[in-house]
Nucleic acid binder design. Structure first.
Length: 656
RNA sequence: GCCGGCUUAGCUCAGCUGGUAGAGCACCUGAUUUGUAAUCAGGAUGUCACAGGUUCGAAUCCUGUAGCCGGCACCA
């Protein structure tokens, strides 16, 4: 006998090994019909599974949030069947559920093209309409391997071998088609429904390893209801509208061109935002950090010492004299990081324990030869500005320095409206320098700090661990922020480094007069300023807050009678520090409003005869209808107040 | 770097199976002096990414290169 407890608290006994389906049927045929799977003690399982022990049981309908994964997983299987029925000889591999849908990787000499998607989708709908039940069988390893080998499914054979010994080899049938799968699945293909859409094709390496063959991956998504699918597609459209590459062009912020793959041409407006960002960061560093500037190019020996030449040579730019006549063959590397430079500055002159912690900051431009396929607008470039800093301190100071950095990072993100932040600790990678003892020490301290970060935030900051993701010289914290439409971006990082200072022979004189190697902490807040600005463009959808907006206001005339007054308005606004342009063209006000709205100018100061006569301005805000007429002085003081950067506002408040 | 796709005017895009390039917006000129998201009329606009090849003839077909886009791999 097994005792099952139902969601309403009722408890009933059933014969051993009764299936979920029979339990459901016993309650009511309609329940059995609409149930797609069951949940035993919180674990989703096939409805046809025999129940072997006492458990809490729940029946899932396809509308249940927990069924969404099943719908997508089933859809992946149906897609695989559709593909194999359309193109026999195609090998199947794996087809997992992912965040917004699912994919299935196929091996076929002729890769799929986007034109194939509608064809596959049509076949999928036929399979779904046939509504064949999913049934499970357990096979022996030998049988599974033999069957898949006979079918020519070599990847499946490999997968069977990869399944741990203590796990069963499960096969799911859907009509005549079957697949190796750990399950669970719904009761039949018809439960998937029709809110299914194939999204794109892409290449992907077998088992994620670039040494392995390239497979064709087909991405799709599925929802319980059509409205949800439609909403998802609209959300994708919304994200496309925010694309910083598109907004960058429309707002005249920057451009790229063929001669400079992965390097940015900043236009005046984009550079204004960039400089505002840097000015903001400089204010935040004032009093705590010393800003320095290390050379752009250094002899390669320095990079050999740091280890970069060994680990990352493929990703570095090399430079030497371009002249034919010169016999100077010295090889320089264009800096991919600021740390070796900062260590040289630390090493220059004898340092005492009294000088620590020494915090050196730099808005340094670094060059990295990123693989061509990695380049992506401002998000991944080959030359970028880091808001970088290196803290040289004692081991005892390390934890408090990490906390100081943490507070700076979190408050910076908050100033841009990023309140949801996750901090992840990345631990030692396989490719690394330094002894295990060093790594043990660093990871112990950082694990403790991570716990304290979570504690001090009252649970607002989530934390996590990325095993093996650390830098080659030390473990790191990665700061992941969530933008206005829920996308995550890794920006800030704090990396503890016991290795580089030692490799470079950096030391300070301790209390006892002995030479001691300092700990170095690498930290960045925005990370790449270019990328951070890209994130901001998408986060704000181009509607920058006034303090960041490159052009804060346009003064537009209604008739040329107001030209003189408009020029006065522009001059007055510039005097109080606003970034203002005039639009005195002989055009209708509708035209001007539309044009500046499309250019995402936050404020329009419209002046006509009436305003000119009474020294008024009619203010129209971006994205809002209607306007507010007020005296010029009042308008300018309201705008200058609004244009105060959040950190400056905080300082003013504290001073008051 | 790997797989696939794309590259036509400043921008967004047409251009059927090869017959010698188009639209809208933007731009320029003129008229219009306008009250909050497109005033009217006229005009100019191209090494069809680049380099080869096939062909009587290539934006169109083939090959190579570059860049971009979507993934994968990478990200000190």
């Amino acid at each position: 006998m097994v005792a099952l407890t139902f969601p309403d608290g009722a408890r009933r006994d059933y014969p051993d090994n009764i299936t979920g389906l029979d339990v459901a049927k016993g309650i009511s045929p309609s329940l059995a019909k609409r149930t797609v799977a069951m949940v035993l003690d919180g674990q989703v399982a096939d409805l046809a599974d025999p129940i072997e022990r006492n458990a809490k049981i729940e029946f899932l309908t396809r509308e249940d949030a927990r069924a969404l994964e099943l719908i997508r997983h089933d859809a992946a299987h149906v897609m695989a069947e559709a593909v194999q029925s359309l193109w026999p000889g195609t090998q199947v591999t794996i087809g997992p559920v992912i965040e917004n849908g699912f994919y299935y990787d196929f091996f076929r000499n002729e890769p799929f093209t986007p034109e194939d998607l509608p064809v596959i989708e049509k076949r999928m709908r036929e399979i779904i309409a046939r509504d064949k039940p999913f049934t499970k069988e357990v096979w022996s390893r030998e049988e599974a391997k033999r069957v898949f080998r006979d079918m020519g499914e070599q990847f499946k054979v490999e997968l069977v071998d990869a399944i741990p010994e203590d796990q069963k080899i499960k096969i799911y049938n859907q009509g005549d088609w079957f697949d190796l799968c750990r399950g669970p699945h719904m009761t039949s293909t018809g439960k998937i429904g029709n809110a299914v859409k194939l999204m794109k094709v892409a290449g992907a390496y077998w088992r994620g390893d670039s040494r392995n063959p390239m497979l064709t991956r087909i991405y799709g998504t599925a929802f319980a209801r059509q409205e949800e699918l439609d909403a998802y597609l609209r959300q994708i459209e919304e994200a496309e509208k925010r694309d910083h590459r598109k907004l960058g062009r429309e707002m005249d912020l920057f451009h790229f061109q063929e001669e400079g793959p992965g390097v940015v041409f900043w236009h005046a407006k984009g550079w204004t935002i960039f400089q505002e960002l840097i000015a903001y960061m400089r204010r935040r560093l004032r009093g705590t950090y010393d800003e320095v500037n290390a050379p752009q190019m250094l002899d390669k020996s320095l990079w050999e010492t740091s280890g970069h030449w060994g680990w990352f040579r493929e990703n570095m730019f090399m430079a030497k004299s371009a002249g034919d006549e010169t016999d100077d063959e010295r090889i320089f590397a264009i800096k991919p990081m600021n740390c070796p430079g900062h260590i040289q500055i630390f090493k220059h002159g004898l340092k005492s324990y009294r000088d620590l912690p020494m915090r050196l900051a730099e808005f340094g431009v670094v060059h990295r030869y990123e693989p061509s396929g990695a380049l992506h607008g401002l998000m991944r470039v080959r030359a970028f500005t880091q808001d970088d800093a290196h803290v040289f301190c004692t081991e005892q100071q390390m934890a408090s320095e990490c906390h100081r950095i943490n507070e700076l990072i979190l408050s910076t993100y908050a100033d841009f409206g990023f309140d949801e932040v996750v901090v992840k600790l990345s631990t030692r990678p396989e490719k690394r320098v330094g002894t295990d003892a060093m790594w043990d020490r660093a990871e112990t301290i950082m694990t403790k700090v991570l716990g304290e970060i979570a504690e001090r935030s009252d649970g607002r900051i989530k934390t996590g661990i990325n095993p093996g993701e650390g830098a080659f010289y030390g473990p790191k914290f990665e700061y992941v922020l969530r933008d206005a439409i829920g996308r995550d971006w890794q920006c800030g990082t704090t990396q503890v480094d016991f290795n580089l200072p030692e490799r470079f022979g950096a030391f300070y004189i301790d209390h006892d007069g002995a030479k001691k190697v300092p700990v170095m902490i690498h930290r960045a807040i925005c990370g790449s300023m270019e990328r951070f600005l890209g994130v901001l463009i998408e986060h704000y959808a181009g509607h920058f807050p006034l303090w960041l907006a490159p052009l804060q206001a346009v003064t537009a005339t209604i008739t040329s009678d107001a030209d003189d007054y408009a020029n006065e308005v522009i001059a007055a606004a510039r005097r109080v520090g606003l970034r203002v342009e005039g639009d005195l063209r002989n055009e209708k006000i509708n035209y001007k409003v539309r044009e500046h709205s499309l250019a995402k100018v936050p404020v329009l100061l419209v002046v006509g005869k009436k305003e000119a006569a009474e020294r008024l301005v009619s203010i129209r805000r971006l994205g809002r209808e209607g306007q507010q007429v007020m005296p010029l002085d009042a308008a300018l003081s309201a705008l200058t107040d609004e244009a105060v950067a959040p950190d400056v506002r905080r300082m003013l408040k504290q001073a008051a």
